[in-house]
Each structure stands twice: as structure tokens, then as C-alpha cells.
Write a protein that binds this DNA or RNA. Structure first.
Lengths: 108, 108
DNA sequence: CCCTGGTACTACGTAGTGCCGAGTACCACT
DNA sequence: AGTGGTACTCGGCACTACGTAGTACCAGGG
């Protein structure tokens, strides 16, 4: 799939929140998971910037743990604010995608 | 619906292309139409910048016509490049939205 | 007769987000 | 010693949507 960059804006962060919400995990693994889920072109750098932002905005709880196969990992888990943000993300997504599908089908 | 700004990035342009594809129309009317379609917070300024971009990128054909109730209108119609861009927009949208819905349902 | 309000477009700057590249660091295997 | 996979950081870039101000035309009310 060619360049989805612009379309991912605003949604990629939500996807990351969702993944973190499923289980405590870390940046590198999130990237691999997204790649497998069809977000093939998403790279580490992008995910790390999102994670830094999430932390800065107080949406996640961070725990550093040794890895055994590389540098220590930073594990992320959602806190209450994060869960709330995730919920509003899905609300927005439902709203937006229904409007757009509607636009496409309805023709006008 | 609260702030959809970030989520609209990359998709709003496609919506505008779609509307123009339905019938030759102009900026102000496009804005009103989007507002009625649920994109309530989209304002003129945003649409005009998109239209300028479409023109600059050679995706539309522009015709100026007097209005009768205000300044002259700039009517926009899709050319071949525009129709092609619209088609790839829908392809991308289908792809992305299916991945995201998949992510939401599948959990992982 | 001005003034408000609706129609219609232009121009400039801002902020947010994803991407890119370079760099650091640890470990396993050859 | 060198390569390759794991794992994170940092700085800058590009693109997009938004906000605000300004211009301009017309109709109707005070």
C-alpha cells in the first residue's frame, strides 16, 4: 500500500493506545505488531515519538525492565487518563468513519 | 463532536475531491455541504487552502463565474489526474479503515 | 444613507503529527 | 573482529488543518 502517512495522522496514536491497552508492552514490540497488522511502513522512530508524547501527556505508566536480548525495555501501560483517551479515540473514529462511508455511498 | 482536526488530516482532501467529483462546485458551497454532512467544524479557510493545493497539483480544472449574490465564484471540476487521485484515496481509505476496524475487533 | 449580515475568496502564520537519519548500546553468532 | 537483530534517543523536516485578518460584493433594516 503506498503512502498512508497523512491518513495515519491522528489515528496512529489511537492504535498505539489500543495495543498498550491490551497488554503492557514496549516500543519495539508495538512496531512489529503494527507491521504485522498491515501498517507495514510504520517504523520505530515514529512509534517512539508517539510513546514519548503519551508519557509527556500523562496517559501511560512506564516501567523499565532488563531485556536479556538487548538494551532494557520501557514497558507502557495505560492509566485512567489513557483509558479515557482511548475511549474518546474510538468514539471519534466511529463518528468520522461513518461520515466518510456515508459520503462515499450517499454520493452527496 | 469534539476536535477531529488531527484525524481529518489526509482524509479531508479526499472528501473534497469526492464532492467535486459529484458535480462542479465552489469553495463556499463545499464548506456548507461538508458542514451538513457532519463535518460541522470545518471552516472556509481550511477548504480554500485545500482547493488551492488541488489546483497547484493539477488535479482540478477551474472556471470563474459571476455569482449574482457576492463576489465571483471559482468552480472546480476534476480532471483525469483528479479522478485518479480520488480513486487511490478511496483505496487507501478502505485499506486503512479495514485495518483499524480489524485492530479494534480482533484485539490483536 | 450607513450598517449589519450573508456570500465568496485570499493570505499568512501556527501547531500537531508522522517520518527520516544518525547515533548509542547490548547481545549472540560466526 | 564483524555482522545482524534488539531497543531506545534525539534533532530536524514536511505536510496538513486551523485561526485570524482582510478584501469585496450585495440586500435589507434602522
Amino acid at each position: 500500500m503506498d503512502d498512508l502517512t497523512e491518513m495515519l495522522k491522528g489515528t496512529l496514536e489511537g492504535c498505539v493506545l489500543h495495543i498498550i491497552g491490551n497488554e503492557e508492552t514496549y516500543g519495539y514490540a508495538i512496531t512489529r505488531q503494527l507491521n504485522e497488522l498491515g501498517f507495514t511502513d510504520v517504523v520505530e522512530g515514529t512509534i517512539y515519538t508517539i510513546l514519548v508524547r503519551l508519557e509527556r501527556n500523562g496517559l501511560v505508566q512506564v516501567t523499565k525492565r532488563p531485556s536479556g536480548q538487548g538494551p532494557p525495555r520501557k514497558f507502557f501501560a495505560l492509566n485512567d487518563a489513557g483509558r479515557e483517551r482511548l475511549a474518546t479515540f474510538w468514539t471519534k473514529w466511529e463518528y468520522l468513519s461513518s461520515r466518510i462511508d456515508n459520503l462515499k455511498e450517499g454520493g452527496r
